[in-house]
Amino acid sequence: MLEAREVTKSFRSGNGTVTAVNGVTMTIADGEFVAIVGRSGSGKTTLMNLLGALERPTNGIIIADGQDITQLSPRELVHYRGRKIGFVFQSYNLVPNLTSTENVMLPMEFIGVGKSERRTRARQLLEQVELTGVKQQRKPGRMSGGEQQRVAIARALANKPSIILADEPAGNLDSQTSSTIIDLLRGLSHSEGTTVIVVTHDATIADQADRMLQLEDGRLLPATQAAGEDVR
């Protein structure tokens, strides 16, 4: 379970202070597929960064699987990000001079998985996201956006994280590929019991989530039931 209690994040900007996330409290159950929606500048990405321990909140606490991640040491944060979180970014952010397989192997190397084991798992994950054959040996520059995002999803799954944080995962993709990627994430959420949190401003994607959280000026609006789904 992932829980945020009165989480606030402020930044210094010029002479003043900007509060990107303002007193957010929420709870996300294991295996839930949640969409965080809001306008540009509403604090969606900042909230995702806080949940992924990429930065610390100014106030409040975040509890992941019973552990307050705001109190972790830098070394423990590296461990948390490496083992419990999988990130998927809008621009894929693959390492350009590594092949698909090597990109997927990367997070496993960071937690000390042996070379042959991580190569085998990387191939399995790439097959799972329907990238097979020579595409597994291609570098990002020779792949389409959709293929790169599949590699990014496979990389996010590499260390079997309990939470996947996806920031506009279909932002650079056409509608058909976008649908495929969201289906993939949704399927993972349901089949693997992985918590998937998608940050998006696309209503179509948000509609496919189990639950939709709406941010406005850093504040979370009252819970909204996603169309066609039960409220958890």
């Binding site: 070394r75 952010n93 990367l106 960071f110 937690i111």
Partner: peptide, 9 residues
């Protein structure tokens, strides 16, 4: 990105 996916400094 490397730090985000678990690489240490």
């Amino acid at each position: 990105i490397l730090k985000a996916i678990g690489a240490s400094n």
